[in-house]
Lab assay of single mutants.
Amino acid sequence: SEHYTFDGEEQAIRFMRDMEAKNLKYELQIHNGKYIIQVD
């Protein structure tokens, strides 16, 4: 699995939509205002 970190919500949402379009599962965590997305 890989981790991707985003500072902004818009970037994170765009990335998650992209993952959904590719049928990839992901998990979102928010730490200290950063959006951390783990992709299986």
Rank of each mutant, 00 (worst) to 15 (best):
D18C: 15
D7V: 07
G8F: 14
E2F: 15
H3N: 10
M19V: 06
Q38P: 01
E20H: 06
I36Y: 12
H31P: 01
K25V: 08
A21R: 10
D40N: 13
F6A: 01
H3A: 12
D40T: 14
E9Y: 14
H31A: 11
D7A: 07
M16H: 00
S1L: 12
Y4C: 06
Y35K: 00
L28R: 01
M19I: 10
T5M: 11
Q29I: 14
D40Y: 15
G8W: 12
H31Q: 12
K34V: 11
S1N: 11
G33D: 05
Y26M: 06
H3D: 06
L24S: 04
K25E: 05
S1M: 13
R14T: 08
E27C: 14
N32L: 07
I37T: 01
Y4S: 02
K34N: 04
D40I: 15
F15H: 02
Y26T: 08
N32F: 07
E27G: 06
N23V: 03
Y4Q: 03
G33I: 01
K25F: 08
D18K: 10
D40L: 15
F15S: 01
R17H: 09
Y26R: 00
I37H: 00
E2L: 14
V39I: 10
K34F: 10
E2H: 14
I37D: 00
M16G: 03
M19P: 00
H3V: 15
Q38N: 10
L24F: 09
E2R: 15
Q11C: 12
Q38C: 15
N23F: 07
E10K: 05
F15V: 03
D7G: 04
M19H: 03
I37V: 12
V39S: 03
D18I: 12
L28N: 01
L28P: 01
E27F: 13
T5V: 14
L24N: 04
D40K: 14
K25H: 11
H31V: 15
G8K: 14
K25L: 07
Q38A: 12
L24I: 14
Q29N: 09
E20L: 07
I30K: 05
I13V: 09
K22V: 05
H31E: 11
I36V: 10
N32H: 08
L28I: 09
F15W: 04
A21D: 09
D40R: 12
L28M: 10
M16C: 08
